[in-house]
Design a protein around this nucleic acid. Structure first.
Lengths: 333, 333
DNA sequence: GCTATCTTCTACAACGATGTACTACCGAGT
DNA sequence: ACTCGGTAGTACATCGTTGTAGAAGATAGC
């Protein structure tokens, strides 16, 4: 920067002013700096700027793993939404491990970013003693850190209820539910309750045998749980996976048995990933408005970074959802 | 750091030495610093360290988009491989846009990382006037910057040839090839030549009508191209997608017509994404050894960062590949 | 003509670490 | 006793910016 200053015949600070958009500058001075910069091919040193301003211009997105379509798509949406604010996104994957989720929030990684968007799998509400250890935070999906961070919530109860209502509306009576619990989050519980509410409203019994735990919300687990249910001779005419991966696994397992979908068993998921659209038959699912979630999360985080003081309290936004009916669900023949 | 130094009764530099692993230190001094650090909850300021050392401890992975399973899985593998070297990965997506690919290599983003792994879609060999503008670089997939960067190559010709040979070996004679060109990379050409070599070796004609261009290597494009081929009345008994996405799109389009796979048409892809494994029927594909690619790319980059001088020339490693036979291909009935 | 205000620019001191160069001590070898 | 090499630690300058404070000139108001 000194070289530029010398060449333009101004002080270093004036060059700095040029780059930070300080308004009081004669057009002529501006022009001289501009051409000096161009001639020297100068670029501001970001490391120095960061040291001085204590801003990194980066935010992190903390998710379990990128090879789950849902998180990959979410990551892409967050990256795009952050670009609007000139922010770079650092995607951190934790494998759904509590220690690694915590480390991403409190470890050295924290210094790399101005704030974080986290979609926690294993983190509990007690895991955040100080509010984000000073790190501006937006939590996606779970009402995890009520009063400690902003949230973008998915209406888990309502989404699951709407899904179950759809299946009931097409004449399904025995719904195999995958993901009912078995994972350390509240999402599973809320969604199960949503399903039970729909069943109750329709006057249908809630057979506990149909509510299946799974070790992970993955295609593997969905396929395994469905295969096990089929093997055990359990009767069901629909499968609701609490995410698309589970549903796709179920679809795979059902089709593998040679059972027709949706004629014999209807299958639906939640998430509206691109995978659902290209399954065969293509998968009915609940869209949680991923783009909206990403945009809202980024907006909230930007605001929280600008004003970290939680005087006005933290915000919770509930995302919209929508039923996407495709070929994997149809009225009983 | 000054506070720690005062508390431990040593100089600031000694504390710095403690953190950078300078070996000459009395155990007693070390212990005093350790406890001072613990009591104060001190952490090294990474911005300052970066400014001073000119190292960021980050590398970037530049890919078209994360919501393609192949790239999401690659990203995850690279992140894991980089963690071994204590490197953080900054995933940058370019949408396959040449300008953005270039910007990721030469723009301000460059300052954020010590080096980059790039899987270029639109970048040409002429796009790199100076060697990476000084940025240590590893290119994946394409022999793009021969003599300007290290490469991890996929044996495109051999992979495609092996794929076609598999289809021929199960009695297929007319293979619809998706991705033959229409994309600005050399990969498409090499793979097409591989297919033609296999056909020639088997004494089969290479019907140019069967070689289809696609606007993108996506499921959408694969489905559209296949549907168009079916509509046109073109006869074929197999589809080879030049990646899994194209093949999955083809599978979708074929099944949608009610045509049985593989009885009527065999379908196979290249990439071995998780999506292929969970398609129904599950998709035969060529595995390019993604974990090996990621590990090799990171290793090469780490070496190049340590020794940027290309005196010993740049390295090219060709990754292994493997045929994964699944249900979507079977001998003709 | 003189103050008051705005505009434009500058000097200096940080931000928090690390590289260089140097001092001081210690034990061993002669 | 004297050098020597290795060990343990220090002082100072520096990485490249930006915040603070203020100076100098221009403009306006009376």
């Amino acid at each position: 920067m000194r070289d530029v200053a010398v060449r333009a015949g101004v002080s270093v600070k004036t060059v700095s002013n040029f780059f930070t958009g300080y308004p009081y500058m004669r057009p002529e001075t501006r022009a001289r700096i501009e051409s000096a910069v161009a001639e020297l091919g100068y670029r501001v040193n970001l490391s120095a700027r960061r040291l001085r301003t204590r801003r990194t211009g980066m935010i992190s997105l903390i998710v379990p793993e990128l090879d789950q379509a849902y998180f990959a798509e979410l990551a892409q949406e967050v990256i795009d939404a952050a670009a609007v604010h000139d922010l770079t996104v650092l995607v951190e994957t934790t494998g759904g491990d509590r220690v690694r989720e915590l480390a991403a929030l409190t470890g050295d990684q924290r210094q790399l970013v101005d704030g974080a968007i986290v979609d926690p799998l294993a983190l509990g509400p007690d895991d955040l003693p100080e509010p984000g250890a000073g790190l501006p935070l937006v939590v996606i999906g779970e009402r995890q850190f009520e009063g400690l961070a902003d949230h973008v919530l998915i209406a888990d109860h309502e989404v699951a209820r709407a899904a179950a209502e759809h299946l009931i509306s097409i004449g399904r009576r025995r719904i195999l539910v995958l993901g009912a619990s078995g994972i350390a989050t509240h999402t599973a519980t809320l969604r199960r309750e949503g399903v039970e509410a729909a069943l109750a409203a329709a006057g249908l019994p809630a057979d506990q045998e149909l509510l299946r735990e799974v070790p992970a919300w993955s295609r593997d687990a969905g396929a395994a749980a469905t295969a096990a249910a089929l093997d055990s001779g359990l009767a069901f005419d629909a499968v609701l996976g609490f995410n698309d991966a589970l549903a796709l696994g179920a679809l795979y397992a059902v089709l593998r048995r040679g059972l027709p979908v949706p004629a014999h068993v209807a299958v639906m998921g939640i998430d509206d990933t691109a995978d659902a659209r290209f399954a065969h038959p293509d998968l009915t699912t609940m869209s949680p408005g991923r783009a909206q979630i990403a945009r809202t999360a980024v907006d909230l985080l930007v605001a929280r970074i600008a004003d970290p003081a939680p005087e006005s309290g933290f915000v919770s936004v509930v995302a919209d959802h929508e039923l996407i009916v495709r070929a994997s669900t149809a009225p009983i023949a």
